[in-house]
Write a protein that binds this DNA or RNA. Structure first.
Lengths: 110, 110
DNA sequence: GAATTAGTTAGCCATATCGCTAAGTGTATT
DNA sequence: AATACACTTAGCGATATGGCTAACTAATTC
């Protein structure tokens, strides 16, 4: 993975990891609380968490034997920004195309 | 890959494929035009295109020996929507947390 | 201080992904 | 008719990913 977006999109490509994000969106949670809804073995799940943490989407602090995880905003915002940017270019092009089509239609009416 | 978002994010995780999206955002292009900026072999590149097409991000029509590709809006919009939704939940929670912190601060002042 | 709980480390296996080359198909172009 | 062009198909190899079990560490709880 080369840059921020690579690892971000890579991280979001897995349903388990997206589910973790969804759960964390409504508040911090421990590893076992996050693991509970998923059928997979804990080590397997931990790997998903590590991916999210390495990507900077999730941060965690260990207190005693409990590790508490929470979301980090920046990567989500950056990705959303990229998508919005693409969409902007693409929609403005569609607009131009549409007005062009109108022009053609008008010419044909004459 | 289970659902739309899985394959979408998976597709966007590769820099070559994001570059293709960026190029297509400003207008349709042929396979070779899309391939030109990339150093990889054509078959390798074609695989990336196929991923984008299978995901529904790109569509293409072949006329004569030239295949012309263009962007399809829906998947980008859906993904952006998902991110926006997550962010909304997460930001509203932050707001609640902040007001809670204010309350605590106020209590401590008393 | 023994047992339980919460997470961690190590290592295995199957499949997916990303790169390549070589050779083939069908459409222009000369 | 021969050549060149624009893909396309087939198949290889290396690495990454997502799952597992077994065994371990450290912090509570009884």
């Amino acid at each position: 993975m080369t840059n921020q977006l690579d690892s971000f999109f890579g991280a979001m490509a897995d349903p388990t990891r997206r589910a973790v994000i969804e759960q964390l969106a409504s508040g911090p949670a421990s590893v076992s609380a996050l693991h509970a809804p998923h059928k997979m073995a804990l080590p397997t799940f931990m790997r998903h968490l590590r991916v999210l943490e390495e990507t900077g989407i999730v941060r965690s602090i260990k207190k005693g034997r409990v590790r508490t995880c929470h979301i980090e905003a920046a990567p989500l915002i950056e990705a959303q920004g990229w998508l919005a940017w693409q969409r902007e270019i693409w929609e403005s092009r569609l607009d131009r195309l549409e007005s062009l089509t109108h022009d053609i239609a008008r010419n044909e009416e004459e």
